[in-house]
Amino acid sequence: MLIAFISPFIPLKGGISRFSGLLADELQVKGHAVRPLGFKKLYPSFLVRGHSPEVPEHRSAANGGDAVIVLYNPLTWLALLRNLKRERPDVLLVAYWTGLLAPLLFVVRKLSGIPTVVLLHNLATHERFALEPILQKLLFASADGYITLSGEVSGALEAAGNAKPVIRLFHPVYPPFSGIEQPEKSEARRFLGYDQDAPLLLFFGYVRRYKGLDLLLRAMPAILDAWPDTRLLVAGQFYEPESGYRELIGQLGIAASVDFRPGYAADADAARYFAAADAAVLPYRQASQSGVAQLACGYGLPVIVTSAGGLAAEVEQGRTGWIAGEISSEALAAAVIGFLGDPRRPAMPQSVREYAAGHSWERFAGEAANFIRSVAKP
C-alpha cells in the first residue's frame, strides 16, 4: 500500500513523534510505501505557555517528509490536500490524540475522499474543554476505522456509539535511543551523583496536572519513613509553574530527597536516568496508556503506576512492576514501599525484557497493516 501518514514527526518533540516515526519505519520494512506528512507547528505559543519545539537527537529513517501543516492555519491544510491529490495514496493514516485535530481530519477526509484510518492515542483530550462533544462528532464523521492502543480507548469508542471498524492493539515498547550507548547502572549513578545502593525513583516526561507529580511528592514522606535513603529524580518539561512544586517540596520537608532536572531531556541524559533508576513512577490521575511506561520497559526498568485508565493493564503486579490500589498519595506510598521491599525485585528487569519481546513494533506494524488494508480495500 501507499500510506499517507499525517502526524507529528521529528524534529517536533514528544512521544507521538517518536511513535509515528518508529511505526512508519516498520511499515516500510514490511514493504509498504509510507509518505510522512508532518506538522510545522501544532499549537500557538499562548496555548503551550511559550514552549517551542526542540530537536531531540534521535532520528528515524521515515522522518523528513513534507512538514507542511500548521494545525491552527487552515491555509496550510490546502497545501496538504494538493499534496494528497498529487500522490493519490491508498489510505490516510492519522495520529490522533486531541480534539483540536478533528477539524483538520474532517476537511481532509471530505475533500480528498481517501479512506482514513485513525490511530487513536486518546479519544478525549486530557485537558477537556467545552467544544469536545462537537469535535468528537467531527472525528466520527471522518474516520473509516480506528486503531487503538488500549482497552480503555476501545471502550470509550464503544460507549460513544462508534459503528466503524476498530482493532485494539497495544502500545509497543520503545527501544533504547539509537546511537546512544546504554550505561551500566553504577556508571549512570556515578555520573548523576547518586549513591550506588540507595533506592532511586524516576518521574519522567511532561509535567501536567493529570500526570500527578504532586501526588507522588505527597507520598514521599511516608516512603522516606520506610526507606530513608530514597531519592526521587524528576526529569521533564514543566507545563505548569515549577515554583508551585518546589513550594510543595519545601512544605513537605523533602527537599534533600528530590532532584529536579527541568526541560526536555536529551537522549543521552534520558538513557542515564533510566539506567540509574530502580523504577519509573507514573502517578497519573488520568491515562489511556503511557509512552513513558513503554520507554521504561525498553530499558528493562520496572514501573509503579496508579490504576488510572489503561495503565494497570501494562503492568504485571510483582513481575514487571507494581500497581497502586487507588489514585491517591497514600496508595502510591504503599505501592512504592511494597515494590522496594519485594524479594522479587532483583528479577523484575528480566521479566520486563520478556514482556517487551511480546510487544514489538514488528508485531504491531503487521497487525496494523492488515487492518489498514481491510479499510482501504474492503
Rank of each mutant, 00 (worst) to 15 (best):
A312D: 03
S60E: 14
I249L: 08
P89M: 04
R353M: 15
L232Y: 07
A308Q: 02
R319C: 12
E247D: 12
E240D: 08
L169A: 05
D225M: 13
P133V: 02
S60I: 12
L123C: 02
L23P: 00
L340V: 15
Q136C: 06
A368S: 07
T116S: 14
D66H: 10
G151L: 15
I372S: 00
G309Y: 00
S7E: 05
T148G: 07
R345P: 05
Q286A: 07
T230M: 14
S374C: 09
G64W: 11
A235Q: 02
V234T: 03
P221A: 09
I16E: 00
A159Q: 15
T98P: 01
S60W: 14
E127M: 06
V352G: 03
V118C: 05
N162P: 06
A333Y: 04
G212I: 00
Y194Q: 13
A347D: 08
R168M: 11
D66N: 09
E354R: 10
L78Y: 15
G64Q: 12
Y284V: 01
E57V: 13
P74V: 01
A61Q: 13
L252K: 09
P133R: 06
F238Y: 03
L84C: 01
F106M: 10
Q28N: 13
N370C: 07
W97F: 11
P346R: 07
I69G: 00
I254Y: 11
A376T: 05
A333I: 09
I327N: 03
Q294K: 07
D342E: 14
